[in-house]
Amino acid sequence: MAFVCTACTPVSKPEYPDSDHFAAAHFFNPEQPESQVGGLWAALNIFWDFTFNKPKDAAPSTSPRVLSLTRDALLALPDNQFVRLGHSTLLFKLNQRFWLTDPVFAERVSPISWAGPKRFHASPIELNDLPEIEAVIISHDHYDHLDKAAIAALAPKTKHFIVPLGVGELLQAWGVAASQVVELDWHESREIEGVRLTATPAQHFSGRSLTDKNARLWASWVIKTPAVSLFFSGDTGYFEGFKRIGERYGPFDVTFVETGAYDPRWADIHMLPEQSVQAHLDLGGRWMMPIHNGTFDLAMHAWTEPFERVLQAATDQGVTVTTPMMGEAVAILTPHRGSPWWCELTPKLAAELR
């Protein structure tokens, strides 16, 4: 099998003098500039665990069931709906147009095509079957959030790519027209067809190779229309910024909050489930939708654990959670609780979901 490297993209060093979280050719987290996941020894320990200490239940024994979608079914959806396609890939229907977050349809999330974390399930819909997309909204450049092949396939049917600073240059290197790209810093907004998209802070990092660490910004997103208010976390550790986002932009009808691929060793850049629930509360969310789980094996926990822990934490805190199947449509203003599609839960939590 031939070696195929998808990371070999030239990296320039643009400057962003107006950004207060950019210095010395790199973006940084103002509240916690240095990640705890640092240093060669820590990296080697994590690599050793991933290689030799993976729990057997980090991936499902069989592919989870998904609900298949067609273009016609999506076109027939009522307005103000969302569908989870996998991991952090969500399709929204707002103002009779479609909006897609962090599109990843690849078999693996890796700089090489034949190795790396492999998806647990097929996408509910093939890329070519998606309807015309008004905007693709990207949180950051990591492989499990930004799929080069998906961008190439989406470019002809997408009007806009809304991205954090620096990511636009990468998309243009991949063939996306400059006229399609809108780059935003934190707290900058763009209104498109009655939908206002605002980049908001997150506590994370970026990079697709050894040479471009933190060269591009990462962000969460506030998505608002006159009818609905949504928050999409991207990837982030828990930080005080959630409270400020809630105060400035909330409340939210639904928060789509990262809950998966976590570990206490890197909790500053990927929240633990209990922190995800607290972030939802800080934001002033009405319903919570856990994302960043159920599709790829990216940590040391059982693949079902994010659902179980977040549901228990939500029950303890009085938070209402929706857990739809992949491919299942949900009305934003009248969500349903979903079902424990990933496994049998304890009777208490199963009752909470019904």
Rank of each mutant, 00 (worst) to 15 (best):
K118Q: 10
L75V: 03
D72T: 11
P124L: 02
A115K: 15
L67C: 10
E107S: 05
K56L: 14
A135E: 01
N53T: 11
D79A: 06
A106C: 12
V109M: 04
T62W: 07
G86A: 02
A43R: 10
L77V: 02
V37H: 12
F82G: 00
A42F: 08
P111T: 05
V104L: 09
Q36Y: 09
W41D: 12
V83P: 00
F120E: 02
L74V: 02
D49H: 14
A58P: 09
L85P: 08
A135K: 00
D49N: 14
S123K: 06
F52K: 10
V109R: 00
Q96L: 11
P124G: 04
E126I: 10
L69C: 04
P60M: 10
W48E: 08
F92H: 06
F105I: 12
F52Y: 14
V104A: 06
P103R: 05
W41L: 15
Q96V: 07
E134F: 03
L44R: 13
P33Q: 09
L77C: 05
V83F: 00
A59C: 12
L91I: 03
L130W: 01
P33S: 11
E134N: 06
N53E: 13
A43H: 09
T51Q: 14
P55I: 04
P111Y: 03
S61M: 14
L77K: 02
S63E: 13
E132F: 12
A76Q: 15
S88A: 07
A73G: 07
Q96F: 12
I112C: 14
